[in-house]
Amino acid sequence: MHELSICRSIVDIVNRNAAGREVRAVHLQVGQLRQIVPDTLVYCWSLVNDDTPLAGSTLEVESIPAAIRCRSCAATTTISAPVLVCGSCSGTDVEIITGEEFLLTTLDLAEA
C-alpha cells in the first residue's frame, strides 16, 4: 500500500502549485513498469483528502505503455510483460525508453 504515502506526496505538489485555488482534477502519468495501481491510487486519493479542500477533486491517471530500445539492432519494442528482450533480435542489451514515468502533468483549477 505505498499508494497511500504516494498520495500524500501528490497532495503536497498539488497544494504548492494550486496556491489556494480550487482544484478540480489532478492529471498523472504512470508508466506500466511502475508497480503503482491506478485504481488503488484513486481510492487512496479520496481517503487522504476526506474533509480537506481537495475532497472534491478527482485524480485522473494516464497509463503509459512500456517500450524498450535494443542496443544491438536499434529496434524499438512495446512490451506487455516485464521481460526485457528485444522483439526483433531477441537481444537482452536493451534500454527502457518509456514505462517508468510517474509524473504530475497538469492541474485543472477553478478560474479566479
Binding site: S9, L28, L104, L107, E111
Partner: peptide, 13 residues
C-alpha cells in the same frame, strides 16, 4: 466558474 488547466510536470518522487 470555468476551469483552467495548468502545466506542472513534476515527478511525484
Amino acid at each position: 466558474t470555468g476551469t483552467e488547466r495548468i502545466e506542472v510536470l513534476e515527478r511525484i518522487f
